[in-house]
Design a protein around this nucleic acid. Structure first.
Lengths: 339, 339
DNA sequence: CTGAAAGCGCTTACAG
DNA sequence: CTGAAAGCGCTTACAG
């Protein structure tokens, strides 16, 4: 636009130099309060807008953060990571950054192709939302801007990440069942499938060990195949009095499966889930679950990436955010076996 | 980074000028095929990445499109516009643009404050996702970059927009109910709240008029307050035999409200919704609804904004995308009133 | 087909 | 407290 005005225009209008304008507008030292105020007012009045490209070219800072989401997470219409991404962008905004999301297509992920926003130097840092192929992650770790993984971690990788404290949450959730009198507890989830499922299992197992509760093999129940597709659940016989499910979705499916064979939940069997997702509230009974405090995770992640942009040497490691147990009706005190 | 390489470096390595490098890399004329190939190979080998800021400063084009979402649409965890935004970003990417989403806070919307991505000249064009305050929209129409409204329009405004053909879809949906024998039909939605709600109402009303079905005032039911927050629904007495809801979410709430007072859906009352959202499938019974063909709307919108960036004089007006009725179990033939 | 020069709008040393 | 000068990495118009 030819009528776009720049710092030079403001300087001319005020009879000063553009250096002073720059300092005044950016809160830098070296300009009197009086002049600063006048510059700001004039800028406002003239409708001045910062040229971010010019600043970026000079400072090598874009004030943009890239957010990567694998296409595989968004097949689903109500993709969870879109919501997370929205939250993230809002938090980044509060810290003075714009968020630029990019979908990593299957093709790019397979080819380990770096995202456009990196190839075109549009961002000062990158957040990866959700686990991706190991090869792709190894490639993305070669970027020369700060990087944070969100909601997953990679063994042996030094990249900072923000994850929910699955282990501890599962431990507490299982303790809750024990406190309710349960002594026969099964875990539902394919423990080699993802780090979350595995960590939640281990937290559950810790509680069982501490409480001297046996865990027969039949009490670890597969819920999905190699491709991550859900499979029918093999219910142990005899039934345990409680199930710890690795996610609400499976807890919901389990409740329906139990109800279908006439088993009352929570009357005869208690079921708890994870994630506080929509499945926990559409189930009947509503499911006692763990809220992962995604908001807190997002806030933490936004803070970390911006700090790292300011000081790339900073290392945060694996940052854990605690979950909160949400008590609902699907878990109750164990019923006496002697009526 | 001090080891970041630029066009000059490539030029030096090849013993040519950076002008030729620029032309070769950008597919511009004035360089032999042979040299072009060599330049591209060298750039690749040296790990060259375009400095978008430098290009932008020179060309006044960022290859970024801003996407604005009002905070009021995202209170909800499963916010629909996040999904749309994700789709939009993917389409923009195919066209060579990055999408930068920005949440417009209540505060900014009230204050009619232009978004950061515009104030800092980060984008070549702006898409507004979903209706916002009239004052805010009037303000946003003053921007000096191409602008497209998505999923709503403003009366008397000349801004291009992409909308679903709400009027016609609602008309067809209501016709469907009439064909099922319904003669007492209510509409659920605050008709002054958004243009979608209003147009869906009018389409519904057109069908009622054509079929000589009366619409008493109690048959137009408010579902949200001035702030867009949902409110309890005032059910008419006597009940109509069918409800046309302005969205699945409200249809879902209505079904639950009806069930809570012992009214069978669809046995006694039919309910239809709009949007084919998750609420239409988690409801019991699943909801007959309209799929707005959001994917097509998004594709169209991405195409329009990028075309307009290339040629700001282009005018598209109100672009309508047709919806498709999805038949499910919540709407059935009216039951005989004489048992 | 190739390249020297100018300039986009800032910010950062530096000098006064 | 204030400003003149240099330069970030590109692209464009122009000259050869």
């Amino acid at each position: 636009m030819n009528d776009k005005i720049n710092m030079e225009d403001i300087a001319r209008a005020l009879g000063i130099s553009k250096v002073s304008v720059s300092k005044a507008l950016n809160g830098k030292e070296g300009v009197s309060d009086e002049l600063r105020t006048k510059v700001k007012e004039t800028a406002e009045a003239m409708g001045y807008r910062l040229n971010n490209s010019a600043r970026s070219l000079r400072t090598d800072r874009q004030f943009n953060v890239g957010i990567l989401i694998s296409e595989k997470f968004i097949l689903d219409k109500e993709a969870y990571y879109f919501t997370v991404c929205g939250e993230m962008i809002r938090r980044l905004d509060e810290l003075g950054y714009s968020g630029i999301m990019e979908i990593v297509t299957y093709q790019s992920e397979d080819a380990c192709a770096l995202p456009r926003l990196y190839n075109e130097n549009k961002v000062d840092g990158i957040i990866v939302l959700g686990q991706m192929h190991g090869d792709y992650l190894r490639k993305i770790e070669t970027v020369d801007v700060p990087l944070v993984f969100f909601d997953f971690y990679v063994n042996h990788s030094k990249t900072d990440c923000v994850v929910s404290d699955n282990f501890f949450s599962a431990y507490q959730l299982t303790n809750r069942l024990v406190a309710l009198g349960h002594r026969s507890i099964a875990y539902v989830g394919s423990i080699r499938s993802t780090s979350s499922i595995q960590d939640r299992f281990l937290g559950c197992y810790k509680s069982l060990i501490e409480n001297e509760i046996a865990l027969p093999p039949a009490h670890v129940i597969e819920d999905r195949d190699d491709q991550g597709r859900f499979i029918p659940l093999a219910l142990p016989d005899p039934l345990p009095s409680a199930f710890v499910c690795n996610c609400d979705r499976v807890a919901h499916a389990l409740i329906n499966q139990l109800k279908a064979v006439g088993i009352d939940v929570p009357g005869r069997v208690s079921v708890v889930g994870f994630d506080n997702s929509i499945f926990s509230t559409i189930a009947d009974p509503q499911i006692t679950t763990v809220d992962n405090n995604v908001e807190e995770m997002v806030r933490t992640c936004a803070r970390i990436i911006t700090k790292k942009i300011g000081d790339p040497e900073r290392v945060y490691g694996r940052v854990m955010v605690s979950g909160t147990i949400i008590d609902r009706r699907s878990a109750q005190a164990v019923v006496s076996t002697n009526p």
